[in-house]
């Protein structure tokens, strides 16, 4: 074997001209994700501007229970003879406001508690974990019912107060669920070597929690909150149907469904229209939750 002169000097390492795997494969969103985002965007816009549109909410006896397209009313009339389309537009505000607020509160609080209970391995963290387990053992809708009836003992409260009660109740119900998800994810990430590396660098516990672990846990939290919002919209409707939700004079999808039940046989379009809007919103949220999870899934070994 002709040995090549291997007089390799220990020269200072020269940069190796090796590019990382070309192009950080940007994942593209499919048409479905865009449709869902479009629908949700529309709902949010309607929620914000709906009350300012000055829509006609007057009752008209003739319109009561009329089918869609009756006399220019696209969705017909509701049980009280109001334009159903206008009612659904106005109802969007309460439904979106209540569900988003509840889950935002739930995610922030639950996420924070979940992070703490997953990362710090002390007694407080252990106790917190047990509390979540106990709360989770309680059927969520029963818990929500109990909370609403405890908080809303004063029947004379304003519609806004009632909204707050529903928001807080749904938030409390969502906290242990979101905390549990966050905790499970935190446990997985807290044992990675980069966390040990950060400890070895002398990073403080909080810095590790928020800089190293949180960014890895957020996608799962977000995906789950999307589902949470969907569940909260349905839960708000369920509470309304059980007559403990928002005040009957606050238009919400739940209230429309609740009152529409009485006319289900004669004019099913009332319940059906509200359910369709609710269904599309929930579907969009669920789908987006999945998309978020897939989108942020870092491929650890890119081919």
């Amino acid at each position: 074997m002709t040995a090549p002169s291997s007089d390799s000097q220990p020269a200072a390492a020269t940069p190796v001209p090796e590019a990382p795997h070309a192009a950080g494969t940007k994942k593209r969103l499919g048409i479905g994700a865009w449709l869902c985002m479009g629908w949700l965007g529309l709902m949010i816009v309607i929620a914000v501007i709906g009350p300012w549109l000055g829509l006609d909410t007057s009752s008209n006896f003739e319109l009561k229970g009329q089918p869609p397209f009756w006399n220019g009313h696209i969705l017909g009339g509701d049980g009280l003879g109001r334009d159903l389309f206008n009612q659904i537009i106005l109802a969007t505000r309460a439904s979106i406001f209540v569900s988003f607020s509840a889950i935002i509160i739930g995610t922030v609080v639950g996420g924070f508690l979940g992070l703490i209970s997953g990362y710090f391995r002390n007694r407080f963290a252990g106790a917190l974990g047990s509390v979540f387990d106990i709360l989770l053992a309680y059927p969520p809708i029963v818990l929500a019912l109990t909370l609403v009836s405890v908080f809303a003992s004063d029947p004379s409260g304003s519609g806004f107060q009632r909204e707050m009660v529903v928001i807080i109740s749904l938030a409390i119900v969502s906290v242990p669920i979101l905390a549990r998800i966050t905790r499970a994810n935190t446990l997985v990430w807290a044992d990675r070597e980069f966390v040990h590396a950060a400890e070895a660098m002398g990073a403080s516990k909080w810095r590790i929690l928020f800089r190293e672990i949180l960014p890895n846990v957020v996608p799962a939290m977000l995906a789950f909150s999307m589902l949470g919002i969907a569940v909260a919209i349905v839960a708000e409707a369920a509470l309304s149907v059980l007559a403990v939700g928002l005040k009957a004079d606050t238009p919400s999808w739940g209230n429309i469904i609740s009152t529409g039940r009485d006319d289900l046989a004669s004019s099913p379009n009332i319940v059906f229209s509200a359910v369709a809007v609710l269904f599309l919103t929930v579907l969009s949220l669920n789908y987006l939750g999945d998309v978020i999870r897939a989108h942020f899934d870092v491929k650890e070994a890119a081919l």
């Binding site: 090549p4 002169s5 390799s8 390492a13 190796v16």
Partner: peptide, 11 residues
């Protein structure tokens, strides 16, 4: 074959 122009080792 010509002898290596650069030493085998790059980095």
């Amino acid at each position: 074959q010509v002898p290596p122009a650069k030493p085998m080792e790059v980095a």
